[in-house]
Amino acid sequence: MSDLPDQQQIIEQLTAQREEALAEYFAACQQRLKRIVNFRLDYRLGGRVSESDVLQDTYVRAAKRIDSYLDKPSMPFFVWLRLELNQRMIELHRHHFGADRRDVRREVSGYRHDNDATSMAIAAHIVAGLTSASQLIERAEQIAAVEKSLEQMQDLDREVIALRHFEELTNIETAEVLGITPGAASKRYLRALKRLREIFEFARQQKN
């Protein structure tokens, strides 16, 4: 899944070559980062900010902060990049929607995650996926309905699904992001999948 070399090698290369290595690794995981933007970026920014803009900004940001990361590489490189990406998205959301947190529908999930936002993001994907073009007008209600059922899941379970599938993180990375052990992350993940199936079925019945 990860196109990156192991953490040890990354740190060595980065320390030796800085920018060049950063560019190479960034390019290697660009697709995954794109996924995250796609998933977390508020849809209302869709027309104004493009994925590649965000990625570019993130790269600039990472390049500026690479030294401090290398001083104390406490987390895997990808997790760190993701963090920088999230910071950039928080800035963008603030910029476009003002400082009012309540207005930011989907506060980006960092270490402290915002669960309502995740519910909403997942719900939107589920509904959009299930809905045909002609039914999209009802999507708002459906999003709300699925969002509601997703709220029945535990916060961590929900987040774990988002990280593993929408952000395409590995179990190790997920554990790192959530600050739990890989074993616990895996357990959570499997449980969440089961629960999600029930929710899917429920949403399907509701639609029919």
């Binding site: 796609n38 970026l41 849809y43 209302r44 869709g46 027309g47 104004r48 900010v49 493009s50 994925e51 803009d53 939107a124 994907h125 509904v127 959009a128 996926g129 999209l136 999507r139």
Partner: peptide, 14 residues
């Protein structure tokens, strides 16, 4: 583009 390329659901919402 008037609407930046994004995933289908994002675009639909935008």
């Amino acid at each position: 583009p008037a609407y930046a390329d994004a995933s289908t659901p994002e675009l639909i919402r935008a």
